[in-house]
């Protein structure tokens, strides 16, 4: 199969990206609101808005990084492993990865209290996530659910993309000029 033909369609990538955005941005926004009351004690709305903009710009880069993983797997693996049913497999892979990352993050204390057991398990998690994502694509009910879910998640892109664009511009402006 030609290289180009192994790439999923843009609409498929968008569906997977929407779920990633939901999780990546959602996680940061939850933390943002958790921190907000303490920031309101000593920071102005402009300063808090600046932190929000930096966070959204970072989330944009993060979400793009995550969406690259299923796309790359499509290119590297046989088509019946990942390319077929890309949405369901991509979404399940992203959910497994980000879910594990959430667990990892909550276990983090400091450099000394680093969750080494979870780091060892991450190798296992990655090795399991790919075949699991591949299998999930073959289970009809799960596949349909994931496709429907990702389709509905696209609505978040109408918010995240303009916010990210403005945030990126703000970040670039503050650091170049």
């Amino acid at each position: 199969m030609a290289f180009r033909n192994r790439l999923p369609k843009l609409s498929q990538i968008t569906s997977v990206y929407a779920v990633i955005v939901l999780m990546v941005y959602g996680w940061t926004i939850v933390w943002f609101f958790w921190k907000l009351p303490s920031w309101l004690y000593f920071m102005t709305m402009g300063e808090i808005g600046g932190i929000f903009a930096y966070s959204m710009a970072m989330n944009f880069l993060e979400s793009l990084t995550v969406v690259l993983a299923p796309v790359l797997l499509c290119l590297l693996l046989p088509s019946n492993w990942f390319f077929d049913n890309f949405i369901a497999r991509g979404v399940s892979l992203a959910m497994l990865w980000l879910g594990y990352s959430m667990l990892f993050t909550t276990q983090m204390q400091d450099a000394e209290g680093y969750p080494k057991n979870l780091l060892v398990m991450s190798v296992l998690a990655v090795l399991l996530a790919i075949p699991l994502a591949s299998v999930v694509g073959k289970i009809s009910i799960v596949r349909k659910f994931l496709e429907a879910f990702s389709d509905r998640a696209i609505v978040f892109l109408y918010l995240s993309i303009p916010i990210s664009a403005i945030s990126l511009l703000f970040f670039i402006f503050r650091n170049l000029f």
Partner: peptide, 21 residues
């Protein structure tokens, strides 16, 4: 602002708000 956003929030030693990086 970079200290506040990155070191105090997104990449804070415990509980970083950045889930990927």
């Amino acid at each position: 602002l970079a200290y506040r956003a990155f070191d105090d929030f997104l990449f804070r030693v415990n509980s970083p708000a950045s889930i990927v990086f």
